[in-house]
Structure formats: C-alpha cells, structure tokens
Amino acid sequence: CKPMSYEEKRQLSLDINKLPGEKLGRVVHIIQSREPSLKNSNPDEIEIDFETLKPSTLRELERYVTS
C-alpha cells in the first residue's frame, strides 16, 4: 500500500470534515477496526492523527470519502 503524501493527507482531512454526521460513524469504524491502539477510544471524541495512521487505513478512508 502506497504511503500518502502530506498533500493527500491534507485533502483527506478536508474531505472527512465535509462529510455529513451520519457518515462520520463509518469513518470512526474504519479507523477503529484497523488501528488497535484506537479500538477503545470514544467514537464521539476520536481525534484523527493522520501521521500515526497506517497507509492502509488512510487508503481505506480515502476510498470511503471519494465513493
């Protein structure tokens, strides 16, 4: 899986911020299912740190927000 450039992460962040509330739950689910360290975090307060997410997680999020 190809790592994301800074610009791609920035765009992904903007795209996620534009999602309606009902789609954000899926974003949280994708992150929690792929990032063991965030599995028990509160979905309402999850802070997405794009620098610490795996490339595969970032690509999955990218696919979701652009679908």
Rank of each mutant, 00 (worst) to 15 (best):
C1W: 09
C1R: 10
K2T: 04
K2A: 04
P3F: 02
P3Y: 00
P3V: 03
M4N: 00
M4D: 01
S5Y: 01
S5A: 00
S5K: 04
Y6T: 14
E7M: 04
E7F: 02
E8R: 04
E8G: 00
R10I: 07
R10T: 04
Q11H: 03
Q11S: 02
Q11I: 05
L12V: 01
L12S: 01
L12K: 00
L12M: 02
S13C: 03
L14M: 14
L14E: 14
D15K: 14
D15Y: 12
D15P: 01
D15H: 10
I16F: 02
N17M: 04
N17S: 10
N17D: 12
K18T: 08
K18C: 05
K18Q: 08
K18F: 07
K18N: 13
L19Q: 00
L19N: 03
L19M: 08
L19A: 01
L19F: 01
L19D: 03
P20E: 11
P20W: 04
P20F: 09
E22K: 10
E22Q: 07
K23P: 06
K23S: 14
K23N: 13
L24R: 15
L24N: 03
G25H: 15
G25R: 15
G25E: 15
G25V: 11
G25N: 14
V27F: 03
V27Y: 00
V27W: 01
V27M: 08
V28F: 14
V28C: 07
H29E: 15
I30M: 11
I30L: 11
I30G: 03
I30V: 02
I30Y: 03
I30F: 14
I31W: 01
I31F: 05
I31T: 04
Q32F: 03
Q32P: 00
S33T: 09
S33W: 00
S33P: 05
R34N: 12
R34W: 04
R34E: 12
E35D: 06
P36D: 13
P36R: 08
P36I: 04
P36E: 13
P36S: 05
S37W: 12
S37N: 13
S37D: 13
L38E: 06
L38Y: 14
L38S: 04
K39T: 11
K39N: 12
K39S: 11
N40K: 11
N40T: 11
S41H: 13
S41T: 12
S41V: 14
S41A: 11
S41Q: 11
N42C: 10
P43M: 13
P43Y: 10
P43R: 09
D44K: 12
D44S: 14
D44H: 10
D44A: 08
D44Y: 07
D44M: 13
E45Q: 08
I46P: 07
I46Q: 13
I46M: 12
E47W: 05
E47K: 12
E47F: 04
E47H: 09
E47S: 11
I48Y: 04
I48D: 01
I48A: 07
I48C: 06
D49T: 07
F50N: 08
F50H: 03
F50D: 08
E51Q: 07
E51V: 02
T52C: 04
T52Y: 10
T52E: 13
T52R: 15
L53P: 03
L53W: 00
L53N: 04
K54I: 03
K54P: 04
P55I: 02
P55H: 08
P55L: 08
P55E: 14
S56F: 03
S56M: 05
S56N: 12
S56G: 11
T57E: 00
T57R: 01
T57G: 03
T57F: 00
L58C: 10
L58N: 08
R59A: 02
R59F: 03
R59Y: 07
R59C: 06
L61T: 07
E62P: 09
E62H: 11
R63W: 02
R63M: 10
R63A: 14
R63T: 13
Y64R: 02
Y64A: 06
Y64D: 07
Y64G: 06
Y64I: 04
V65G: 06
V65D: 06
V65H: 05
T66R: 15
S67F: 06
